[in-house]
Nucleic acid binder design. Structure first.
Lengths: 123, 123
DNA sequence: CAGCATCCAGCTTGATACTG
DNA sequence: CAGTATCAAGCTGGATGCTG
């Protein structure tokens, strides 16, 4: 039997969540948090290129989906730590498996690109 | 030691490839092709919601990265089959592992969302 | 430090029309 | 069938300025 949720269907809510996870910054954020809890600006430095706005937005979406937990200390200056939930860890592990696979095969990807480009450039 | 490629670095080419794979349509396309070779319009129907243009664009990117192989028969009407390369299969498997994990935990995600929304709506 | 509000340039996307 | 070309609209995301 099929699961009740199916990302291939346009209307399925799982599609939206998949996009939060695999979106431009979602995956990198989850990946960074897999090593351990991080504060906002630490995270910002790890995820090279993310803006304050996008990181904030990304964290809200991941928190809402129950993948990230936000721990705020009411001190001054404020200190906020982000960490993966158990569900977030499950997801992050699978995502990192994909990322590491890719990083390990980038030479093949780059070679494929060159073949593709020269074959096309020739025409 | 670290691998030569690192998606967390803004300039690394692996970052672009990760985006092809996890982009809005890339992941769904790879997932659909994991079941077997498909023609252009078959793929279009599987990946619910993708436009002709975006599918075409997505396939070009995946082909260039060496993840998808394009097999064109010079018949009339034309017939073109798309299938995963060995590298594409490796990537697709890890991606599907993530997708299935997510589909199986969507109830948790939806519950987390409700908690988040009611906690926020209250304020 | 941790973030929100606003503005707006430009990239992405979908619709439509067309080709081989 | 399997695409390509073009165009408008809308969303994404970066920069800036401000708050607690």
């Amino acid at each position: 039997m099929d699961l009740p949720y199916n990302v291939f269907a346009k209307l399925c809510p799982s599609r939206g969540t998949l996009e939060h996870i695999t979106g431009r910054w979602g995956g990198l954020t989850l990946g960074a948090l897999h090593e351990g809890s991080l504060r906002f600006n630490e995270l910002r430095r790890r995820v090279d290129g993310v803006s304050e706005k996008m990181l904030s937005q990304t964290l809200h979406a991941l928190e809402r989906d129950g993948l990230v937990h936000r721990e705020a200390q009411p001190t001054n200056p404020p200190r906020v730590d982000y960490e993966l939930t158990p569900l977030g860890r499950e997801v992050a592990e699978r995502l990192l498996s994909l990322i590491h696979c890719l990083e390990g095969r980038m030479d093949d990807v780059l070679a494929a690109r060159e073949r593709y480009d020269t074959a096309r450039g020739a025409r």
